[in-house]
């Protein structure tokens, strides 16, 4: 299996191109490898195609085709994926509550770069 602790691969799932790119740029600047998906289905496909498991998934909630929630449900059903930590990044006004089913880890948009780097660092040491 491809899960390897310490691997510096981050999966970004967001339907907004600007955010995907900005997050990707910042993380790459810090030396991370980045996997990018535009929705939940895309994310599942990328995960399954990838030979390596990311150390963290930064997940948007409101997305076309497959929402963050649906994605999370699928991920939890897949034993090979269920151990990858998920942090929700959303602009939802009620994020604290919405993030509960995902283990309660979230970052509210707009999000500070430092906050993103912190959470990524904690999971991808």
């Amino acid at each position: 299996m491809c899960s390897r602790p310490g691997a510096r691969l981050v999966l970004i799932v967001d339907d907004d191109l600007a955010i995907r790119e900005a997050l990707g740029d910042v993380l790459r600047d810090e030396g991370y490898e980045v996997l990018i998906a535009a929705d939940g289905q895309d994310a599942l496909d990328k995960l399954r195609q990838s030979g390596e498991a990311p150390c963290i998934i930064l997940l948007d909630l409101m997305m076309p085709i497959m929402t963050g929630s649906q994605f999370y449900a699928e991920q939890q059903r897949d034993p090979s994926l269920r151990d990858i930590p998920v942090v929700v990044i959303s602009a939802d006004g009620n994020l604290r509550q919405k993030a509960q089913p995902f283990g309660g880890r979230y970052l509210a948009k707009p999000v500070k770069v430092d906050a993103v780097l912190n959470v990524v660092e904690q999971n991808c040491a």
Partner: peptide
């Protein structure tokens, strides 16, 4: 917020 997030991340980056 969504575009703000993009702007912020880029500016900070």
């Amino acid at each position: 917020r969504t575009p703000l997030t993009g702007v912020q991340l880029q500016v900070e980056g």
